[in-house]
Computed example of a mutant assay.
Amino acid sequence: MRQKRFSLFQLLLAAALTAAVVLAAGALAVNHLLGGAGGRSLVEAWHLINTRFVGEYDQEAVIDGALEGMVNALGDRWSYTLTADELSAQNQRRTNQYVGIGITVNYANEEGLEILEVAAGGPAEEAGLLPGEVITAVDGISLAGEARYEGADLIQGEEGTTVTLEVLGADGGTRTVEVTRASIETDPVESRMLEGDVGYVALSNFYDNSAQRLEEAVTALQEQGAQALVFDMRDNGGGYLRELTDMLDFLLPEGPIFISRDRAGNEETTYSDASCVELPMAVLVNANTYSAAEFFAAELQEQGVAVIVGEPTSGKGYSQQTFTLAYGGAVNISTAAYCTGSGTSLIGTGLTLDAEVYNTDDGTDAQLAAALELLAE
């Protein structure tokens, strides 16, 4: 039986009733606390459901639905709700760590999960799993057909526990492999030296340790003789403000690099110190370059140190905060508008591209090639 929890509305009701008793102007206090008639209506509806509704229902599901409807009605694509499980998964993901077996898969094979990569030193490598093999079952549950989309969730679990996989090899043979789940740290940075002494740095997110890893990668490339840098922000959905500003501080000279304004109009400016990286730069972007990744490109371009190559971006100009709620879930809502160091907002415009270039399916990277051409001029 599901353990009964206090909901957001129940807590609001309790707080409102307490305020009404304690304060002399009780009616006014309740009205202010609940946001007027609309807020009271939410509490009233929840009370009616709990006291009059005759059907079966899941209280937690009702709360999730009510919160989701409320946040969706804001009309802000960047605000969303999280169930307790989704909040836990998000928090784990943002550490650039996860509990699993250390494989990258795709869903192209209808027989199961096709292994694309096996993390060096991870549980999967130790168990002998190889790229190209297909996981056809997890703990006896078949992954054939549509079931393969649930495979990743089945493989994940608590650290130290084991999972049994049925594996189809490239030769058509099958075998059973038992793998012990472990906490695996993911590296958000991939770097290498390209021809012409150009350092390439791809960043997958702006979560924990991403700024430190970018600084380490750039420093290593400089030591190898890099004369220019390409930052690949394609398919990067952003992350933490602190990681963004740490990166910009490392790369840019002294001056303002980020301006934020809250609902009350309070303004906060973040500054870079005089230490910087004095190399020409380019930033690769696409339609999935959001938030901190989009801003990263904009600020480097504004400071005159980088060109931007790729596809038009969304024009995100709000930062969000995640607020946990009493019942275990959370709301992630936009709480501030932000601008570049000179006060430019990206809302409604997105990035100004130095070269608008689209990749095709021919296997070449036209966007990277265009960036290298601009750096060579």
Results as ranks from 00 to 15, higher is better:
residue 221 L to V: 06
residue 168 L to E: 11
residue 205 N to M: 03
residue 170 A to R: 14
residue 131 P to I: 10
residue 116 L to V: 15
residue 147 A to S: 13
residue 141 I to H: 14
residue 114 E to Q: 15
residue 225 G to P: 00
residue 161 T to P: 05
residue 213 R to I: 07
residue 211 A to H: 10
residue 142 S to P: 06
residue 200 Y to M: 08
residue 175 R to W: 08
residue 116 L to G: 11
residue 220 A to F: 05
residue 128 G to T: 01
residue 166 E to Q: 15
residue 206 F to C: 00
residue 126 E to N: 12
residue 184 I to W: 10
residue 128 G to L: 01
residue 222 Q to E: 12
residue 205 N to C: 05
residue 127 A to T: 02
residue 139 D to K: 08
residue 179 V to W: 00
residue 201 V to M: 05
residue 124 A to D: 02
residue 184 I to D: 11
residue 226 A to Y: 02
residue 186 T to M: 14
residue 224 Q to S: 06
residue 119 A to S: 13
residue 119 A to K: 15
residue 187 D to W: 09
residue 148 R to D: 09
residue 212 Q to V: 11
residue 153 D to M: 10
residue 215 E to D: 08
residue 120 A to C: 09
residue 160 G to T: 03
residue 196 G to W: 01
residue 199 G to D: 07
residue 187 D to Y: 12
residue 206 F to H: 07
residue 114 E to C: 10
residue 127 A to R: 02
residue 213 R to T: 08
residue 224 Q to I: 02
residue 195 E to R: 08
residue 147 A to K: 13
residue 184 I to R: 09
residue 177 V to M: 00
residue 213 R to M: 12
residue 164 T to Q: 13
residue 171 D to G: 05
residue 114 E to T: 13
residue 172 G to Y: 09
residue 206 F to Q: 03
residue 205 N to F: 04
residue 178 E to W: 03
residue 215 E to H: 10
residue 114 E to I: 09
residue 146 E to W: 03
residue 219 T to C: 05
residue 169 G to Q: 15
residue 180 T to P: 01
residue 186 T to K: 15
residue 216 E to V: 06
residue 166 E to R: 14
residue 215 E to R: 15
residue 128 G to Y: 00
residue 151 G to F: 04
residue 219 T to L: 06
residue 184 I to Q: 12
residue 114 E to K: 15
residue 123 P to D: 09
residue 173 G to Q: 12
residue 177 V to H: 03
residue 194 L to S: 06
